[in-house]
Amino acid sequence: MSEDLNEKDERFIVSASPHIRKDISVEKIMYLVILALMPTTVAGIYFFGYHALFIIILSVLSALITEFLILKVRKKEFRMDGSAIITGLLLALVLPPTVPWWVPVVGAVFAIAIGKQVFGGLGQNIFNPALVGRAFLMACWPVLMTTWIVPFGGADAITAATPLNALKLHHITTPSMQLFLGNVGGCIGETSAIAILIGASILLTLKIIDWRIPLSYIGTVFLLMFFVGQDPIFHVLAGGLMLGAFFMATDYVTGPITRWGRVIFGIGAGVFVVVFRLWGGMPEGVCYSILLMNAFTPLIDRYVKPSPLGWGKRERKIAEGSK
C-alpha cells in the first residue's frame, strides 16, 4: 500500500480516507513500549536481584506460550506483535520480588486467557490484561502478593513494608528522594520513579501515549492529597501510581479514545486511588482504580463524542433536536 503512495508521486490521487499515512504499526508501538519499559525492568533487577529477572522471564514466556496455544485453538494466526510480551512484562513488574516461580506463570496464563483471549484477543479486551492477572493473583494468594523485601537483600532478605504500608500501619513517611530513586520495598517495577520517567519520556516525545491520561491521573491524586492534608509528593511517588499512570492507564485498547474522555478517565482513576489509599482496607489501589475506570471506558466514549469538523453550537442543537 505505502509504495503506491510515496511522497515523490505528485499526481493528484483520488482515494477513500484515510489520507494521512504514517509509518507506524501496532508492532512498532508495542516494541517501543517494551523499550520504554526497559529502564524500569533493569532498575527492578538491580534492586531486587536475579529472582526478579527469573520472575520477569517466566511471566513473559508464559504469556507468549498461552497466547500462541489459545490462538492455535481458535484457529487464528499468531503474530509476534509484542502485545503478549507487554502483558507478561507489565504483570511481572507489578508482582512482589519474593513470589514463588508458579505465581507469575499462573498470573500470565490467566491474564492472557481470561483477561484478553476470552474477549476476542488483541483490541477486544475490556480490562487491562496485566492488571486482570494481578487482581486474580491478589484474590487467590493475598499473603504471597503482599510479602515485600528491602532492596539489595539477596536471597534471604528480611521482609520490609512498602512505603504506603509503612504510612498506613506505622505512620512513617519515606523520604521522597529514596522514593524517586527506588531504593524502597515494593513490586519489582514500581519502586523507581526515575526509571519510569525515563521510559515514559520516550513514549511522550514520540507521542505513543497521550499526556492527558498521566497528567490528569497523577494531577488528581496530587491535588486531592494536598487538600486532605497528606503529603502529595509522597503519594505521587510511592506505590504503583507512576507505573500505572504511564504504562497501564494509557493502554489504547482499554482507555477512552477522545481527548476529553481521557481526561475524565485520568480524573476518575485518580479519585479512586485517593479513596482506596485513605479509606480502603489495603494500602494501595492503583490496580483496582484502573480496572474500574476500564469498566467505565465505553460509557465515557459514549458521552464524550467529538462533533464533526465544522460544527458549531447551532449544528449541535439541530442534531440534538432531531433525535
Binding site: 499462573v106 484474590a139 487467590c140 494468594w141
Partner: peptide, 15 residues
C-alpha cells in the same frame, strides 16, 4: 498446592 481462594469467591463462580 496452595489453593486459589478466588474460586470459592462469587467471582470464581461466574468464571
Amino acid at each position: 498446592f496452595s489453593p486459589a481462594t478466588f474460586f470459592i469467591m462469587p467471582a470464581g463462580a461466574f468464571l
